[in-house]
Simulated scan of single mutants.
Amino acid sequence: MHMPVGTISSSRDTVGVAVVNYRVPVVESKAEVLENCKRIASFIDGAKRGYPGLDLIIFPEYSTQGFHPTRWLELSTTVPGPETDIFAEACRRNKVWGIFSITGELNPKGNPWNSLVMINDRGEIVMNYHKIHPWVPQEPWYPGSEVLVVEGPKGLKVAGTICYDCNQPEIVREAVMKGAELVVRIQGYMHPTSLQQKLISQVRAWENLTYFAVANMAGRDLVYSYFGGSNIVNFDGTVLAECGQTPDEVTYALLSLSAIRDARRNWTAENHLFNITHRGYTAVQDGVAECPYEFYRTWVTDPAKARQMSERLTRSTVQPEEHAAD
C-alpha cells in the first residue's frame, strides 16, 4: 500500500501536498509581520510553479508572527485580518489551498488563541481551529475546545492540529472518527525532542489509518533552535517525504483518495478504526462495542474524578512543589 514518490504532478485521485520547513521569523512590529506574510505568500507562488500538481501547502506554527518572548500580545491580530488577507490572495492567484498559523488571534474571552487557519483555492477561510492543548508551561494561549474537520481539495477530509496537541493521542482519534483522512500538524518544535516528534507522526498515522502531514519551523529565534523535519506520512506509517533541518526546505507528496478509503473499508487485520468498537468479533457476534476503559468513562461522566486519577500519578498543583514559591 505504498504511494509512489518522486513526482511533481497530481491527478483526480491524488492530492498534491507540500510542507514547508519555514525559517522561524523574528519580528518586532506588526509592519514586520506583514512583510513576513508577503514572504510566506512568495513561497506559495514558487511552490506552485515548482510543483504544478500542488493542491495544498502547509506552513508551521509561529511562522506568521513568530513567538516573541515579550511582544506576543501586541503582535496578536484578528481572523480574518490583514495577515490572512495576504494569504488568501496568494491562494486565490495560485488556485491552491493553504494552512497557516496565527499566534495569536485576539480573543474576547481572555488571552489570545493559537490558531490554525485553512484557506481554500478561492481565498475563503474554511477552518479556524484553536489549539486545544497549549504547550505548558511556556505558551500563554487560551485553550480551544473543539476538533474541526472540513472537506479540502478534491474532497479530501482534513483536520487541523497544532504542535503539543498531538502528544495527546486522543485528539487524532477524535479527528479521524469525525471523518479526517489527512491530519495536519503545524508545529514550532525545538530541540531536544526531534526524535519523539518524528516518531509521533508515524505512530499517529498508523494507529488511525490516516495520512499525516507535519510542517515544522527551522532555525533559531530569540529563545530556541527548531529542528525542521517537516514530513508527510502514509496511512500505513511509512514516510512519503521528509525535510532535513535546513530552514525553508519544501517537500511534496501525493495522497491517494481511493487508497485510504479502500484500506479503511476492506482491511481486517490492523483496521484499528473498525476493531476498536468490534472487539473480538472472531469469537463474539459482531464483536463488543462497549468502551472497556474506565478512565475514559470517568472523564466523560465525572471530570473532577478523572482529574484526581491523573493527580494521583503526577501532582495536585499546577507547578511542581519545589517551584510553588517562585
Rank of each mutant, 00 (worst) to 15 (best):
C163F: 07
D165V: 01
C166K: 11
C166M: 13
N167H: 13
P169F: 10
E170I: 08
I171D: 09
V172Q: 11
R173P: 06
E174Y: 12
E174W: 13
V176K: 08
M177F: 14
A180D: 01
E181A: 14
L182Y: 08
V183I: 02
R185T: 14
R185D: 12
I186Y: 01
M190D: 15
M190A: 15
P192E: 06
S194L: 13
S194C: 12
Q196I: 07
Q197C: 05
L199R: 14
I200T: 10
S201T: 09
Q202M: 14
R204L: 12
A205D: 12
W206N: 10
N208K: 06
N208I: 03
T210W: 11
F212R: 07
F212M: 09
F212Y: 13
A213Y: 15
M217L: 14
A218S: 03
G219Q: 05
R220Q: 14
R220K: 15
D221V: 08
V223L: 04
V223E: 10
Y226A: 07
F227P: 00
F227A: 00
G229V: 00
G229P: 08
V233Q: 05
D236T: 08
V239F: 05
V239M: 03
V239N: 07
L240F: 08
A241R: 00
E242I: 10
C243K: 10
C243P: 03
G244S: 08
T246R: 14
P247G: 09
D248F: 01
D248S: 03
Y252T: 04
Y252K: 10
L254S: 11
L257V: 03
A259S: 15
D262Y: 13
D262C: 12
R264M: 01
R264W: 03
W267Q: 12
W267P: 00
A269S: 10
N271F: 02
L273V: 13
L273Y: 13
F274Q: 12
F274I: 06
I276S: 07
I276K: 09
I276M: 07
R279T: 02
Y281I: 05
D286R: 11
E290V: 04
C291M: 03
Y293T: 01
E294M: 05
F295Q: 11
R297H: 03
T298D: 02
T298W: 00
